Simulated assay, not measured.
Amino acid sequence: MRRHPLYAISNEEKIARYAHVMGDVPWSIADRAYTEAFARLPEGARRELVADLRAHLPTESQIPPTETPDDFARLMRDLHARSALVTCRHAGDVALAFVMSRTVAAFYRTGAGSLSIDRQPPWVHDLAEHETAPIDGGTTHNGRGAVTGLW
């Protein structure tokens, strides 16, 4: 199995990659990815994350109890909650777990995301275990002889 380079990147890059994926995936995929991401966090980190979110969210926002991964996924449907998430202490951990979730990988490997995989950044190719095409796009007639007729 290949080692994912996502582990060695900064929190800012993790959040940028999370934002990229959020712009690509439908809500059904995002819900499952949030569920997986929250479930991967240790119990203490979950409690801290929820407390941070509550502190950053506007008071008029209705904050449902967020004790289970499914509750967290429902909370993340709210734009204010997603905005607050990136300011929390565990934002990088959640972003990394979201991007590396089985659900997101499957979206790019075999789901609708696989249709645009060639236009995705290289780290998405790694995530989906997709072999990146060579620079010439796989053409066999890129030699000098093909252009001039000389081999």
Rank of each mutant, 00 (worst) to 15 (best):
I63L: 12
A8N: 15
R74T: 15
G113P: 03
E12C: 09
T59S: 13
I135S: 15
D52C: 09
V50Y: 01
K14A: 02
R17D: 10
D24T: 05
A106T: 13
G111S: 10
G137Q: 08
A45P: 10
E67C: 04
R2A: 12
R17H: 15
T132C: 08
P64M: 03
V104F: 09
R46W: 02
T139I: 07
R82A: 13
V147I: 05
C88W: 03
W123A: 03
R102K: 13
H90I: 11
S28M: 12
L150C: 08
P122T: 15
V147G: 07
E60H: 10
R40N: 11
L41T: 08
F107K: 04
R144T: 05
T132K: 11
L75D: 01
E43S: 14
I15L: 04
R109D: 07
G44F: 09
A30Y: 06
R109H: 10
D31I: 10
W27N: 09
H141R: 14
C88Q: 05
R74S: 09
A37E: 06
A30R: 03
F107W: 13
H20I: 04
A133C: 08
T139K: 06
V124Y: 00
V25S: 00
A91K: 00
G113S: 09
I135L: 15
E48D: 15
P121L: 05
A91D: 03
H56G: 00
H20K: 01
P122F: 05
D70T: 10
L41M: 13
Q62G: 11
T140F: 13
Y7N: 11
H80G: 02
G137C: 09
